[in-house]
Simulated assay, not measured.
Amino acid sequence: MSSSRFLFRNGTVLHSSDAAAPITTFLESHPGAYTTTRTHHTASCLLFWERHVNRLADSIRILSNSAPKLLFQSNNHRLSLPVTSPMWESAVRALVDDSMNEALPIAMNERRGGEELSVTVLVCGSSGRFNGFEYVDEELMREALDVYVSVGCYVPRAFDVRGNGARLAVVGQGRDVANAKYSDWVRLRKPLEKLRPPSVTELLLSNDGDHILEGCVTNFFVVCRKDNDEAKGTCLHDQNNTCAFEVQTAPIQDGVLPGIIRQIVMDLFISHSEFMSAKICPRSMFPSLQQEKFFEAFSNVHRSC
């Protein structure tokens, strides 16, 4: 399967030009909410799958209410669907589960021994399918939404190898509707990609050129020495100021994607800080390029397309 990619629509294999195109090209031409993950341990499980499905449902709900043009193929940009979060989650989960149950066995059958798989799920639809209905129930949503599943080979990057670290540059402002993950961002970021210096592997977003929001395709964190006088009481999990360092990442409410890895990193520092040789406290605040106590920065290497 090394050179192959499978594309499914509602569980059926597609053999159109969309199936042969790179996944980024497909996302550019299809509005919708999406998520990307991969398999682990010789394709025996999907990484953080429950979290991905939950965020996918959240993204669909957010886009349907605040930016339907990013979700539906429609000229009616004022469309809004008054549906509840449990309904979105239930309908999306059922649709995605049905599609994945059809797609993964086929991809696994073509997989070579030892290969891992990259999986992208896109949920979209046409707003015209809702015409004439005053109430949107789960059954109608399942008929109106399409689920695309793209499965290809994934080659994990080796850690602790010189040259595999991220090389960063600040190039543009934050995303609109940043708390949802939508495919149109793949198209919108292309002008930023043209500004990428040859040696840079990730582009950072900032509204003022100093305070970092996130990367174009990654979350962004900095580790800095903690100033107990300035930071006293700012970390809910370190009221006694016992941490020597703090890891900073921009708050979700200030315009970043609620990334899966972002939350896992924050949870990790909270739950395992007592086992670390130097205690590190997580803190939601804008990482600043101007701060003097900057110690280290890192970004996750697999967040999205």
Rank of each mutant, 00 (worst) to 15 (best):
R38A: 01
A178L: 06
P68H: 05
M100F: 09
T35E: 08
D229V: 15
I270E: 01
N207D: 15
V200M: 11
S17R: 14
G132I: 06
N109L: 11
N241L: 13
L192C: 07
L268R: 11
C243F: 12
I261G: 01
H302I: 13
G32W: 01
D98A: 14
G209P: 11
E102C: 15
F269P: 04
N240L: 13
F294H: 13
N300H: 12
S99A: 15
S273D: 10
N65C: 13
S99G: 10
E274Y: 12
R189N: 06
E246V: 03
R38G: 00
Q248T: 05
N65T: 15
Y182P: 01
V149E: 00
N101H: 13
D58K: 06
E134N: 12
S299N: 14
I252F: 09
V171R: 04
L140P: 01
T36I: 04
I212Y: 08
G114N: 11
L188T: 01
W185R: 01
K181S: 00
C124Q: 11
S64P: 09
E139N: 07
L47K: 08
D229M: 07
L63E: 02
E246G: 01
E230S: 11
A278P: 02
H52A: 09
V171N: 01
R225L: 12
I261P: 00
D227G: 04
M276A: 07
H30C: 10
N241V: 10
R51I: 01
S16H: 13
P191I: 15
G165F: 01
Y154L: 04
V171K: 04
S288L: 11
D18R: 10
S199M: 13
V265M: 10
R157S: 10
S183K: 00
D137T: 05
S99W: 05
H272Y: 11
